[in-house]
């Protein structure tokens, strides 16, 4: 029962990482994990891919965090005359209403980051809870939850998001909800198998025999072993979510009250021949941000989920 593929998600080979019968590899014992964490950083830092990813991601997060410092003006305000090409005053030019494209790009980072992190965070929570409960409870509950997991996996994510946003009206909340509700399947599987693997290890059994509470077991043995791979998986959701948000905005389904790169690209469509800067800069911003978080997510997964390689983000 594994290897249902997932549209646009870290797919491959995960049957082995996630539920593989065979040698299922619970990640080391507790102290080993801690040591690995310390060692990880060195290994991590030695990979150029990881470093580039980290740098770009940090840059992205900084821009998003410091919008009010970098571009204090409202990105929707009429800062200049329409269609000014890039200049000293408006670095990235102005759009059809004289709004500063640079301010839009900076403020858009915040929106994209929000969407990416919200989707990843929500799917992480849902996935961990469902997977954890399934793993612990076993039996009927496990069966039911795994059915549910399968269901969430066979729903076509992009199309569902498109439909929901189009029908219920644009708004970041709707978008984040649909994406989160269709993105937790892999996380659930990984955390479930993490729980199963750890449970079967002798020391847990021994600990149980010694009378320590299940909650304590969860905290001391299970969580440390599953949290890292799950977080790594979640990091891969970020880029995908950003791209989907941009794609839906491009189709005219974005939230007009919040500046976003997708919204800017959609707006730029009407003026591609007149004002190239309106579409070039937001497009580049998306590419750089997604590249950064993907590289980082990739690197994280290389460490924590070495056998589950990402199929990458989606459009």
């Amino acid at each position: 029962m594994a290897r249902e593929g997932r549209a646009a998600e870290p797919v491959t080979l995960r049957e082995r990482a996630a539920s593989g019968p065979g040698p299922g590899r619970p990640r080391g014992s507790d102290p080993a994990g801690a040591r690995a964490a310390r060692g990880s950083w060195r290994r991590f830092a030695s990979s150029p891919v990881a470093v580039v990813g980290l740098v770009l991601t940090v840059l992205f997060v900084l821009v998003a965090a410091l919008t009010s410092v970098i571009a204090p003006t409202d990105p929707f305000s009429f800062a200049g005359t329409p269609f000014e090409p890039p200049s000293a005053k408006h670095w990235l030019g102005t759009d059809d209403l004289g709004r500063d494209v640079g301010a839009g790009v900076v403020h858009g980072a915040r929106t994209s980051l929000f969407v990416g992190v919200a989707v990843a965070g929500a799917s992480l929570v849902i996935g961990t809870v469902v997977g954890g409960v399934a793993g612990f409870a076993g039996g009927k509950v496990d069966d039911l939850l795994m059915r549910l997991t399968e269901l969430s996996q066979v729903l076509p994510r992009f199309f569902l998001a498109l439909t929901v946003v189009a029908l219920f009206g644009p708004g970041l909340t709707n978008m984040v909800l649909v994406l989160a509700l269709t993105s937790w399947e892999l996380t659930a599987r990984v955390s479930r198998s993490g729980v199963l693997a750890v449970r079967e290890l002798e020391y847990v059994t021994a600990a149980e025999a010694l009378g320590s509470s299940p909650w304590r077991n969860l905290r001391t043995h299970v969580l440390p072993n599953t949290i890292a791979p799950v977080v790594a998986l979640a990091s891969l959701q970020v880029g995908g979510a950003i791209l989907i948000e941009a794609s839906l905005s491009f189709l005219g389904l974005g939230d007009p009250n919040v500046i976003s790169w997708g919204y800017m690209l959609n707006n730029a469509q009407s003026f591609v021949r007149r004002a190239w800067w309106m579409s070039v800069f937001p497009g580049l911003a998306i590419a750089v941000a997604v590249l950064g978080v993907n590289l980082l997510g990739d690197a994280l997964n290389d460490f924590w989920n070495p056998r589950s390689r990402s199929g990458g983000a989606s459009a």
């Binding site: 929707f76 305000s77 009429f78 209403l97 007009p256």
Partner: peptide, 10 residues
């Protein structure tokens, strides 16, 4: 239509 609205919002 959205354009009218965006100008008016500002």
């Amino acid at each position: 239509f959205p354009k009218y609205a965006e100008v008016m919002r500002q």
